[in-house]
């Protein structure tokens, strides 16, 4: 318990230092920082997660049991990687003065990633089916 209290106190001090650094900004920048801090949580908790849960419910209804694990796994990989790639896919940082930034065809790149993911999912399904004697109709599990 003492370790935990000590850890907690250290954590509060470190975070407070960060907050103090933030407060050195002028008011407009501080407000903007606050909007971005809160905006991320709101978007995540009230848009992204509900959409993910909804998609999960739909998939459970639509997909036969033996397909669920590989399909959900593929969607987690593709979904999270796509979110990570939003700034390059949007290309808002592109700069006419500097052709060395955002200089790939990101749509094509994303399609390749999606294609490889689908291929991996299909292969996983085939390997699982091959490993089982009865195939999809057997309802062994």
């Amino acid at each position: 318990m003492r370790t935990r209290l000590l850890l907690g106190a250290v954590g509060v001090a470190v975070a407070a230092y960060g907050a103090w650094l933030l407060l050195q900004q002028d008011r407009a920048d501080l407000v903007d920082t606050g909007v971005w801090l809160a905006g991320g949580v709101v978007l995540h908790d009230f848009v992204l997660v509900p959409l993910t849960l909804l998609l999960g419910l739909v998939l459970i209804r639509l997909l036969p049991a033996y397909l669920r694990a590989p399909v959900v796994g593929g969607l987690v990989v593709l979904g999270t990687v796509t979110l990570m790639a939003v700034p390059v896919l949007g290309g808002w940082g592109a700069n006419a003065d500097n052709p060395t930034i955002l200089d790939r065809n990101y749509t094509a790149g994303w399609l390749v990633v999606a294609g490889v993911t689908i291929l991996a999912v299909v292969l996983t399904i085939m390997l699982t089916l091959g490993g089982r004697s009865g195939g999809p109709g057997a309802r062994r599990r």
Binding site: L7, A13, V14, A15, G18, A19, L21, L22
Partner: peptide, 21 residues
């Protein structure tokens, strides 16, 4: 509108502090 470098630096301390808590 905020400065990326100083704000990213400040919030880094907040993340690590909150993580330790």
């Amino acid at each position: 509108s905020f400065s990326f470098r100083s704000t990213h630096f400040a919030v880094a301390w907040v993340v690590i502090g909150a993580l330790v808590v």
